[in-house]
């Protein structure tokens, strides 16, 4: 196939559009290497496709750039943290060999870790405890008062019985 036929075949367009097969990509790269005319045409087509895209451009609303910068920044920071962590892990692995020089001492911690949700349960138990205590005091006093009244009534009944 002559170079003009290759140019007219549409292979350049499929390559630029990103839908060329592996075989077509190899062919384009080979032709580009061998024929300056083909390379020039390919360059022109690339440029024209870019201009075409410029003509279709839609102006992005303000604030998009700062969002992109923020996203890039966030991801880079996250990656740095991961790198630091893996480096620390690597160091700790190296330190493991040093550990052999020391005697390991087993000890138990006096503290325990519990889920944050339990604080509401503890608060509810505390409040309920206070309410029950209040009721207990109230009924104790009521009961004492009732007993005193019963005693008084008994004395009164006895007095009445004696007078009769």
């Amino acid at each position: 196939m002559k170079i003009k036929e290759w140019i007219d075949s549409g292979i350049m367009e499929t390559y630029i559009m990103g839908v060329a097969t592996e075989q077509e990509i190899e062919q384009v790269l080979l032709l580009k290497k061998q024929y300056p005319e083909f390379e020039q045409e390919l360059g022109k087509l690339e440029y024209d496709m870019e201009v075409l895209a410029q003509n279709m451009a839609i102006l992005p609303p303000p604030g998009i750039l700062s969002k992109i910068e923020h996203e890039v920044n966030e991801i880079q920071l996250r990656e740095q943290k991961v790198e630091k962590f893996t480096a620390r892990e690597h160091n700790s692995n190296q330190n493991d060999s040093r550990k052999d020089r020391y005697i390991e001492v087993e000890s138990e911690s006096n503290h325990m870790r519990i889920h944050k949700a339990w604080r509401w349960v503890f608060a509810a138990v505390f409040v309920l405890g206070k309410i029950f205590l209040g009721f207990a005091i109230y009924y104790y006093l009521e009961n004492r008062q009732a007993k005193e009244q019963v005693e008084e009534l008994k004395i009164e009944i006895k007095k009445n019985a004696q007078t009769r």
Binding site: E50, A53, Q54, M56, A57, I58, L59, P60, I64, L65
Partner: peptide, 10 residues
């Protein structure tokens, strides 16, 4: 960005 937005909106 403008070119890409034009493409995406396609």
């Amino acid at each position: 960005a403008g070119m890409l937005l034009g493409f995406i909106q396609g």
